[in-house]
Design a protein around this nucleic acid. Structure first.
Lengths: 253, 253
DNA sequence: ACCTGAACACCGTTCAAGT
DNA sequence: ACCTGAACACCGTTCAAGT
């Protein structure tokens, strides 16, 4: 039994960036609402930052642009296309450090930090980056910057994809969790420390969890740092040191 | 101006696992539809595996259980609660390796591999694990297994959270991307290799990408392995070796 | 105690029609 | 070329009502 979902336009599109249509859908002076892809994309990013991925809708975006939802479909085929455009556009914020003479340790640390900050600043990037192909021009530039740094490690070529994966999948995971925590704190109207204390308190008050919390108390105590942010900073720095040390060790093996 | 979203039940719930109500909502013989939380959770996992997170809805699940959507709300407060229950339940599949005498290298590799497989088998776990607190009983057991392994590394206590983060955030990111690729291939009705070839072909055919693809051709060529799966396997193994070497190096520093 | 039907306030998207 | 209104087939959730 064929459902509507089975009747797919030929061929199934996997990304906005692979569409054939000329990218000439740009603003013209006589356009009624003065829309174009850039304007729509910018508004999408603004809305996603302000209200989150869950609340974002074509109708909500249209209202923001003083237009009906349907007019957006003149510039974009689907909501997913729009999200892909928004996703790629924020990678512009990562300006690859072009000081090629710096030690790769520092270049790697800088790139990892910038990426982490991007994921925290735009929490919606993490789910979307996991979901789309992410081959837009700006994310491509980022991924080539990553490749450049890995090349500079001196690892044999056949090891480089694995090392790249170790470092940047870590940063992706770290930034995802961090961004989520920041967002939850803000939603609760609390500082990160207040939110952390409250969450721990609630968990500890549940008898079924007390045993588990105790067993990891030593880890928490030894983590060091007075605030949640400080602890996280130490963890991130140490993890990067660990990864760098790992790369050195594998290179000399 | 107060919107409906501002009027929040006191206090804002952050997890099913923190609800106060007695967990006594269990099956009784005389129940019309014979439902209970376990049955509903199991059906949720089945549906999520079969049709994905995007297509999952309360109405769809209800149909699967031969019941109206509203009857589900007797057992669960919101759709999110249900997703949290489903999420935690699959962590049951990770049975922590209880051979405490094995070398921590092997225990870490085994735990990482099991976690990776979980993320690939249930692609919907990755977005949910990023979104919820993930403090259910089964995920707790997993996270304590992780702590045990990290403890066995011999790293000083204050370094352990950072090392834990490096290893398991990497696995999370790796499994997320892998699961997504597997899913996309399956949706397109292609093997992973066919899908990969097709995607590369499409990208290469776009003039705006050819320059970029070329620049990373050497990396791809050197990656080794004849199939996508083989290349991925090598990358994963190497990344784990790198992380283990990094831990050793930091311990002796 | 458990389940249902009707209703509310939303979605993404299509299509024919307007300017 | 660009934008709209009406309509379709969906959502999650509430609430009063049934058994």
């Amino acid at each position: 039994m064929a459902s509507a979902a089975d009747r797919v336009k030929s061929p199934a599109r996997t990304s906005v960036w692979l569409e054939q249509r000329p990218p000439s859908r740009t603003r013209r002076a006589d356009q009624p609402a003065g829309l174009d892809r850039e304007k729509i994309t910018a508004a999408t990013v603004r809305l996603l930052d302000a209200e989150g991925l869950a609340k974002f809708s074509m109708r909500r975006l249209a209202a923001e642009l003083d237009v009906t939802a349907m007019s957006l479909y003149w510039y974009v085929d689907t909501k997913d296309d729009l999200l892909e455009l928004a996703l790629d556009s924020v990678y512009r914020e990562i300006t690859p450090p072009r000081e090629e003479d710096a030690h790769w340790h520092d270049r790697l640390r800088e790139l990892a930090t910038t990426y982490r900050e991007l994921l925290v600043r735009h929490v919606w990037v993490s789910p979307l980056a996991g979901h789309f192909l992410n081959i837009g021009p700006h994310s491509m530039l980022f991924s080539y910057a990553v490749q450049d740094v890995i090349r500079a490690t001196g690892l044999p070529l056949r090891r480089q994809t694995g090392a790249l994966s170790a470092v940047f999948q870590f940063v992706y995971g770290f930034g995802t969790i961090e961004g989520h925590f920041v967002q939850r704190s803000a939603e609760a109207g609390l500082s990160q420390d207040e939110f952390f204390q409250q969450a721990m308190g609630t968990i500890r008050s549940q008898p079924q969890f007390s045993r588990m919390v105790e067993s990891s108390q030593d880890l928490m105590d030894a983590r060091g740092g007075d605030t949640v942010e400080e602890m996280r900073e130490r963890d991130f720095d140490f993890a990067l040191d660990l990864l760098i040390a790992g790369i050195e060790a594998m290179r000399d093996r």
